[in-house]
Design a protein around this nucleic acid. Structure first.
Lengths: 143, 143
DNA sequence: TATTGTTATACTCTATAACTATA
DNA sequence: TATAGTTATAGAGTATAACAATA
């Protein structure tokens, strides 16, 4: 009927793979901690960087402003972070993990590091380099 | 603050990469043809396999039944496919591309093949093998 | 006027489950 | 009763844009 084969098409294979890994990881934390992927990203970023504004997270974490903002609202409601007004620029909101948020992240870190280890094992010996090579797909050849 | 680094975490990198490639490809067709990713997958599968049921597509294309069903409904409304009742088993629905659907797929194929070529070029010489190696991430080590 | 963050809109996705009609 | 497909539901993702407050 056609000479196009969806199964060899890289965007499709990549989407299927990313979905599979994301769901698998999500099984490791979503039920236990009750957070979504967006919330996980915000918490992980805050944990690594310390307090940050919505805009900073938006730029660092591949999520647009509104998604970050809504995730932060949910996390605040759950007592995992606080919002403060920036002392000099009133437009900025300073997001900080609470003690509860820090404690959750500590557990999550263990889960995430264990999963990362398992993924690297699946890749085999040159896993890191292999994966980095595939990430060249994201670099548009603008030359 | 923490020894966890989101930027080196494989599920995150994979999600970011897949999103980037998917959006980039989508820019090549969504505006021009007015279809979503789910619709594109259904059309591509039908084009490769010939007429198929909802269930067949569901099993082959990493989308659940309802997503396939809804995509098919939208495509039917746009005149890109038809639904027929199966002659012997009335529960089955036979989805077939219309002439309009075939014509669209012909154009889409050109776009997709060109994009695939560009992606392989970004990967470099051993691209296919490198990519296949990374797909081992999707194979849970169930031993 | 421009920027930061929030909220609105509308559609799609995801997961689950109920529902219908056939078998 | 089991199966194929559709529809419902509810929360989340996606993209865009309007909006309020501040700069």
């Amino acid at each position: 009927m056609s000479d196009f084969d969806l199964d060899s098409f890289i965007p499709y294979r990549l989407a299927v793979l990313a979905g599979k890994v994301s769901r698998e990881f999500s099984n490791h934390y979503s039920e236990r901690f009750g957070i979504s992927r967006a919330e996980w990203r915000v918490v992980a970023h805050l944990s690594a960087s310390g307090p940050a504004s919505v805009g900073e997270i938006h730029q660092r974490v591949d999520m647009d402003k509104s998604r970050v903002s809504r995730a932060a609202t949910r996390l605040e409601k759950d007592g995992l972070l606080t919002k403060e007004e920036h002392p000099v620029d009133g437009r900025l909101v300073k997001l900080s993990l609470t003690a509860l948020g820090e404690a959750m992240m500590l557990e999550l870190e263990g889960v995430a590091n264990a999963y990362q280890t398992e993924l690297l094992a699946r890749l085999g010996s040159d896993g890191e380099e292999t994966f980095a090579a595939v990430e060249r797909l994201g670099k548009a050849a603008d030359a």
